[in-house]
Design a protein around this nucleic acid. Sequence first.
DNA 1: GAGAGATATCTCGATGTCAAGACAGTACAC
DNA 2: GTGTACTGTCTTGACATCGAGATATCTCTC
Lengths: 168, 168
Amino acid sequence: MTEDARDEVDRLVAAWRTERPDLDVEPLQVLSRVSRLAKHLDRARRAAFAEHDLEPWEFDVLTALRRAGKPYELSPGALLRATLVTSGTMTNRIDRLAQAGLVRRRPDPEDRRGVLVSLTETGLARVDAAFSDLLRREHDLLSNLGPTDQRALAGLLRTLLAPFDSPL
Amino acid sequence: MTEDARDEVDRLVAAWRTERPDLDVEPLQVLSRVSRLAKHLDRARRAAFAEHDLEPWEFDVLTALRRAGKPYELSPGALLRATLVTSGTMTNRIDRLAQAGLVRRRPDPEDRRGVLVSLTETGLARVDAAFSDLLRREHDLLSNLGPTDQRALAGLLRTLLAPFDSPL
DNA sequence: GAGAGATATCTCGATGTCAAGACAGTACAC
DNA sequence: GTGTACTGTCTTGACATCGAGATATCTCTC
């Protein structure tokens, strides 16, 4: 009920209510904020990684490998499912990461169509450093929210995300 | 405390807890979900707009103009602030929208550096149709959440977004 | 064990974005 | 009024992404 605009989305919703009073624009309260927040997060991440000489896309691939645990090795197919990009993109990413010496490619001994990608020593060190730095910054971004609110927010987002993740 | 993975992010967090038990990865519960959800939303929007022969980037610009109200006219500078893109991108977008007959450019009579961009009749009709379609789909995406939860979620997101929106 | 269809990866062309800088015009202080 | 800093828009070149299709291999059925 409060009509004071507290963020851009409040202003945006107020404008729509004036222009299209016939429509129910409530969904924007959630979904526009998700999109905008993601865009800001991308920029924050870019800044965080710059100190470690990593691009966000490089980080995405390296963390997927890191999370897999020793020997830090996954197929391109597993990587593209983890990072939500297309196969052409993943091929390109792996090429450049390999050229930078952060990952290694080898043929899959069990499937001659397949390839396995693994972290190099350098890649492992780089991703570990960047990741703890990122967590520090993300922790700060969330500092306006208490632990209870954070858990509540995570739960609500999980509900929205579930239909996307399961049927894939 | 429940350790059953309910979405990809739960699995991701569990993997990190195993691999880096020294780090507090709680922030990912919120922020990874925001990023992933935004990515899925982009795809859903793309699908929705395809029926109206619009790309998401076209829609972003057209809605900003539509929201401004009659005469549906804004400067490129205002548009890029509304859409979080750079000036080079906005120039390119306006070029292509003008070529498609959806917007019109004219010199700003009050500032000879400036330009004003406005919706054409076609642009207005197109954006209105696409917008109500989008809202219908976004409404469905949120159907897993009751009205109370939606409001709670919007409020929590607003808290996170506020520091980004105000200091700009 | 042969064939059909599925799967894994890569190639290629088109495209949208960004960053940095160019340029014209404005505003403000002196 | 003149000079300096700022603002608004556009240009350019590099680059990451996507989508469609190519190729090789595997799997399953008969």
